[in-house]
Design a protein around this nucleic acid. Structure first.
Lengths: 235, 235
DNA sequence: TTTCAGTCATGACTTATATCATTTTAATTT
DNA sequence: AAATTAAAATGATATAAGTCATGACTGAAA
């Protein structure tokens, strides 16, 4: 399943302004390049599992992944996505806990695995890197707090509208407004925190109201302002 | 409103194994002691407000506070509590964002305010302190992820049972099982993410089933195992 | 291209929980 | 201690959203 392709160098990532590696010096980048292991993961494969301990974290070189928790009856609650440039699995090693989510590949991915001891060394020796990592964790915590309030207080309708906008912001749209991620209705429901049929019905309503267009799994956002109003977002 | 009492030294806090200050050297503790400002906050007062920027964080010397987000119609969603030894408000300065919650005093509190530049200096110069801060943030993120799944998937009944157990773990019980925190039914509802009446009804049911005893605002947990079963917790 | 498994769509019905209204009780203020 | 305010309790009703069932459609595999 996993075979080794072109091994991307961390300079390539470091050049992307959104990654945590831009704070690193050349010898630090060299160390990571030496220590890391890159693998291809096929769509559908599990990278790490909730409840397991890992001894490193993953950097997404390409592809898209979902991170979810599994409830009592096996139903998923998607917590977050990871795409090119993002890191995954760092929370559990930093807190010394088991993974609190499962990471599953939505689109074929190339991931670099970096051992935790490398991460701890970097935290110890490069305070700018530490600061970047803290910022990233703190930002994610802010997102999670907002998510808690949304699920507790907003209607499913409001939440679906907001999730569609979030997907636009995270993955972009093409020129005709089509979201650049391919999700089943069930997966959408697992983000919103509702039943699949409820999502299907609301998508149908949004389509009738000319807010979106549907074409198979493709969703085009036609009226972003309208979706913002429905979602009760303050911007 | 705020007047200055006995100013607690940070050594006193550092001696408590649960605080982030145990990683600090004596000169660092001296710097904090020099920079900090301690104040008494009366029950009901607001320490910081969602959406505002603060230029420091708070250390709880005594008292209990709730941190909550406010929804569209002004309804609160309580995200977390802070008690003696905890820190608050650090997430927003670390992420460079505005505060994502409001902090309100539940029981008269003494708080020390520490300027953010002091925090940033410590992160820069003491990697053990950095690591402790990352761990704390990462742990809180794990809690938040779990909370998201609970609200999305568990019934109100299950969630209330779990919240009661969480309050026991956070604030302890006295010898007769009475939770050592005093919350209105509305506040319980704002943790669970439901209507006040629903909480009242379920508390009444739990009382009838001999799981808890009620005496005014006091709640005694009589059958912890029973509550665990109802909450569908895996331990 | 055909087959088949998985997903989407829809209708009917059920249920968990919210809202509304009112009375009672507890906590706080004077 | 009395008065006032806030909170708790309860009943009735409404509603958002979940579940179940079934047929249609899509995408992947052969």
């Amino acid at each position: 399943m996993k075979n080794t392709p072109h091994i991307p160098s961390c300079e390539e990532c470091a050049r992307h302004s959104g990654t945590i590696f831009r704070m690193l010096k050349n010898d630090e980048l060299d160390e990571i390049n030496y220590e890391k292991r890159c693998s291809v993961y096929k769509k559908g494969s599990i990278v790490f599992q909730e409840g397991n301990r890992t001894n490193g974290f993953f950097c997404v070189n390409s592809g898209i992944l979902k991170m979810y928790k599994t409830g009592i009856d096996g139903k998923e609650q998607i917590i977050r996505f990871a795409k090119k440039g993002d890191i995954m699995g760092y929370r559990s090693i930093l807190s010394g806990e088991a993974a609190c989510t499962t990471a599953k590949v939505l689109e074929d991915a190339v991931l670099c695995f970096i051992p935790s001891k490398t991460l701890f060394n970097l935290v110890k020796t490069n305070s700018e890197f530490s600061m970047e990592l803290i910022q990233r964790t703190a930002h994610e915590l802010g997102d999670a707090n907002k998510y808690i309030m949304n699920i507790a207080q907003k209607t499913v309708r409001e939440r679906l509208a907001e999730i569609l906008l979030l997907l636009k912001d995270t993955f972009d749209m093409d020129s005709s407004g089509v979201l650049q991620i391919n999700l089943t209705r069930e997966e959408l429901a697992n983000i919103v925190g509702t039943a699949t049929e409820s999502v299907i019905r609301l998508l149908s309503e949004f389509k009738q109201d000319k807010l979106i267009a549907l074409n198979g799994r493709k969703i085009a956002l036609l009226d972003v302002k309208g979706l913002e109003r429905i979602s009760s977002m303050y911007l």
